Amino acid sequence: MSTPAPPSIPQSILRPVQFMAITFLVDNSIEWPLPPGFTHEMRHHLTHDVPELDPLTGVPILPLEDFCCAAHGFSALIVCTGTSEASPRFTLFDTGPESKSLSRNLAGLGTPLGPIERVVISHWHADHTGGLLSFLDRRSKEFGMRTIVDVHPNRPTARGIAPPPTGKVICQLPRDPTFEKIEAHGGTVEKHEEGHVVAGGTVWVSGEVPRVTPFETGLIGGMRFTPNEDCTGGSWSEEPDIMDERYVAVDVLGKGLVIFSACSHAGIVNVVKDAINRFSRPIYMIVGGLHLAGPEVAGRIKPTVDFLSEALIPAPTYVLPMHCSGFATKIALEAALGEGCVPAGAGHKVIINGNPSDDVTLGPPSVRLR
C-alpha cells in the first residue's frame, strides 16, 4: 500500500525538551555493557532502593525478586521536561502483552503511577495492549484518577497469524480491549487518526505512516477478522499493512529526534523518512522493535541497516533494537554502527540531557536515495 507523503509540519508544533528519561518496562531481552547515560537495572536497585545487608558479610543483597521479568511485548515510560517547564511530563508508550509483567515491573522499579497522565497505544496488537486494563485499574484504585488512553480509532475485531506458504491462520492474538472496557476500567479514550502533540507539546504521536519504501512491505502473514453483520461468524483476510500503527517522537535540544517505534510494521525506514519530512531534524536515537526477526524478512535487514548507517546523514547516534528486531539485525547494526547499537532491555534506563548551545550546530538531515 502506498500513500502520498504528508505536507511538512512546522517544528514549532513539537516543543523541544531540555531533559528526557526513558525506562523500559517490558521487553524480552537483556544484555550489557552499556554506553554512558544508559543505566542497567542492577544499578537502579543498588542505588535508588535501600537493599538489605547480609548480616554475615555486611554486603548489600541484590533484590532479584524485584528485577523486571521479560515478556513478549513492549512498554516504555517517557519522561520529558520542556524548556519552559519545571515539572516533567510522564507518558506511557504501550503496556506489554498481559497484566502480570507490567504490574510487576512497575512495582519492582518503584515507578510512580500518579504522574502518568497518558497512555499511547502504538497499534492494536495484544502484545502492546495486554497490560492496559490492569494498569488503568491500579492507577484508578490507588489515585482515584482517570487516565487518557490515546489510540487509533481503527480497532480490529481480531487479528491473527497465517505464516507462509499455506496462508492458514494458525492462531488468533488475544482481543484488544474495547473502547467501552477502557472507559469502564478508568480510561478516557481519545481517538486520533492524525498526528498530534501531547504532554504539553513535548511528545509527538504520529498518524498513519506513509508507505514509500519499496522493500518494506508490511507484516507477512498478518490477518484480520471481519465479522458478519449478524455477528454469527465472519472471515479472515490478509492484512500486511497495519495502518493503525503510530510512532512517537521527542525533540531533545542539541541532540535531535528520539523516535519510538514499537513494532515497525510500517518499516523503520518509512518511520524515519516521515519524521524527517515533518520536522527536518537529525535522528538522535531510534528505540523499539524493528520487526526484522525471522527468515521471511531477512532480506530487509541489509537495506534497513544501509539506510540508517549510510544513506541517512548524519546517522543516528544510537539505535536500540528491541522486542521483534531479531539477533541478526542486532549483529548487522553493531557491525555498521559499533557502540551506537545499544542492547537495551527491560529495567534499563536512559537519561538524555539537552544542550541549547549545541542546537544551533544541528543542521537538517539529508537522505541519499539509491
Results as ranks from 00 to 15, higher is better:
115 P>Y: 10
154 N>F: 08
173 L>S: 12
189 V>S: 07
157 T>S: 13
104 R>K: 15
110 G>S: 11
163 P>G: 02
175 R>N: 07
102 L>Y: 04
149 V>W: 01
71 A>C: 09
103 S>D: 06
201 G>I: 02
208 E>L: 04
84 S>Q: 14
122 S>V: 06
177 P>E: 07
163 P>T: 05
154 N>H: 12
91 T>C: 09
104 R>S: 14
67 F>A: 10
104 R>E: 14
202 T>R: 12
145 M>D: 12
159 R>E: 07
65 E>S: 15
197 V>D: 00
190 E>R: 13
182 I>Q: 02
204 W>Y: 12
144 G>Y: 14
205 V>H: 04
118 R>S: 05
111 T>P: 09
182 I>E: 02
143 F>K: 12
139 R>Q: 13
124 W>N: 10
92 L>N: 02
158 A>D: 06
95 T>E: 00
196 H>L: 09
197 V>C: 09
139 R>V: 10
204 W>D: 07
93 F>P: 06
118 R>N: 04
79 V>A: 08
200 G>K: 01
172 Q>F: 10
77 L>I: 05
119 V>Y: 01
84 S>E: 15
136 L>W: 00
121 I>L: 14
195 G>Q: 09
151 V>D: 08
160 G>I: 07
159 R>V: 15
74 F>N: 04
143 F>N: 13
152 H>Y: 12
193 E>W: 07
182 I>K: 01
205 V>N: 03
187 G>V: 00
173 L>N: 14
150 D>T: 01
164 P>M: 05
66 D>H: 14
70 A>F: 09
109 L>C: 10
206 S>L: 02
77 L>G: 04
109 L>V: 11
200 G>N: 02
82 G>Q: 02
107 A>D: 12
142 E>I: 05
79 V>C: 11
66 D>K: 15
183 E>W: 00
139 R>M: 08
203 V>W: 10
166 T>H: 14
141 K>R: 11
124 W>A: 14
165 P>N: 06
92 L>W: 05
121 I>M: 11
131 G>S: 08
81 T>G: 05
156 P>C: 06
183 E>I: 03
133 L>E: 03
121 I>C: 14
206 S>N: 07
186 G>I: 02
177 P>Q: 06
184 A>K: 10
95 T>Q: 01
156 P>H: 01
167 G>M: 01
175 R>Y: 05
96 G>E: 04
66 D>W: 14
177 P>Y: 05
67 F>Y: 15
98 E>G: 12
165 P>F: 08
107 A>Q: 08
99 S>Y: 02
113 L>S: 04
120 V>R: 01
121 I>W: 00
